[in-house]
């Protein structure tokens, strides 16, 4: 399965590389987009010295972790975005069902946007820069936590993209509102979760767990405590939360497909 995945993805990348100039322009475009957003954030936090008691470097940790995860999720799962929407509109999802592979796998491999690495790269630079300015005590456990956190974050964002796509089975168009949770979520968790009111905090931790993408891990790394009592050790629960959320998205996808196979549209 993995080798087939790599083959299909390889084919996507080869076709994108037919237009090298476009590829590089878009890569730079994505990096610049998230880059200037960070500059705006940095100017704001710099002007006021801190946000909710977090310094710019500390916010950089939050921002970096979320950006890396979001960029990776976009890279691997944008097949659920425009390509899938187009399939629903043209009725070509039928063709997916006549192939001996799972529909989820086929949609995921229908697109692979290497250019989204622009966002991840920029996020990684901010994260590394922030770490250099902070006295983070790196233990083995914390080093192990980092890839786990990034992977969990990626999985949470992927699940959101899948949920948005699944709604297509009923509406034909991916509702714009899903942007609130993907792009909005990424922007929201770029600041410490403690600055928001209870409703927003709870929604983004327990309903749409984007808050788990970076906040507990940052608490742990920076040895900070959450004013509302979220323990820093919750960072270790992120993989579990992400798995549960992704499973829910996968289940929703199956409901969507069975809706399609019973009504054909």
């Amino acid at each position: 399965m993995l080798s087939l995945y790599l083959r299909l993805i390889g084919a996507r990348i080869r076709s994108q590389m037919q237009y090298k100039l476009s590829f590089w322009l878009e890569l730079v475009g994505f990096a610049l987009s998230s880059g200037l957003e960070f500059v705006a954030l940095a100017i704001l936090v710099g002007t006021f010295h801190s946000v909710g008691g977090w310094s710019l470097a500390e916010v950089g940790v939050l921002y970096g972790l979320s950006s890396i995860s979001f960029g990776l999720a976009e890279m691997v799962s944008r097949g659920f975005d425009a390509p899938f929407e187009l399939m629903m509109q043209r009725g070509s999802f039928d063709g997916v069902l006549t192939r001996p592979l799972g529909s989820f796998f086929q949609i995921m491999t229908s697109e692979f946007q290497l250019r989204r690495l622009g966002r991840s790269t920029q996020g990684a630079l901010v994260f590394l820069y922030a770490c250099r300015h902070l006295a983070i005590h790196w233990t083995l456990a914390r080093l192990i936590l980092m890839p786990l956190t990034l992977l969990s974050g990626m999985v949470v964002y992927m699940a959101l993209i899948v949920i948005g796509a699944t709604i297509c089975f009923w509406t034909i168009k991916t509702p714009e509102v899903i942007n609130i949770f993907t792009f909005g979520g990424d922007t929201l968790v770029s600041y410490p979760l403690s600055i928001y009111n209870g409703l927003i905090r709870n929604i983004f931790l327990w309903v749409v767990p984007v808050g788990f993408v970076n906040y507990p891990a940052a608490l742990l790394l920076l040895q900070r405590s959450d004013p509302y009592g979220l323990p820093a050790t919750a960072a270790w629960a992120a993989p579990l939360v992400a798995t549960v959320f992704f499973a829910a998205a996968g289940l929703f996808w199956r409901v969507g497909v069975s809706k399609y196979t019973s009504t054909g549209s």
Binding site: Y19, S22, F23, L25, E26, L27, V28, G29, S33
Partner: peptide, 8 residues
Amino acid sequence: DNTGVMLI
């Protein structure tokens, strides 16, 4: 494909 230009 001017998507990149439009993004920037």
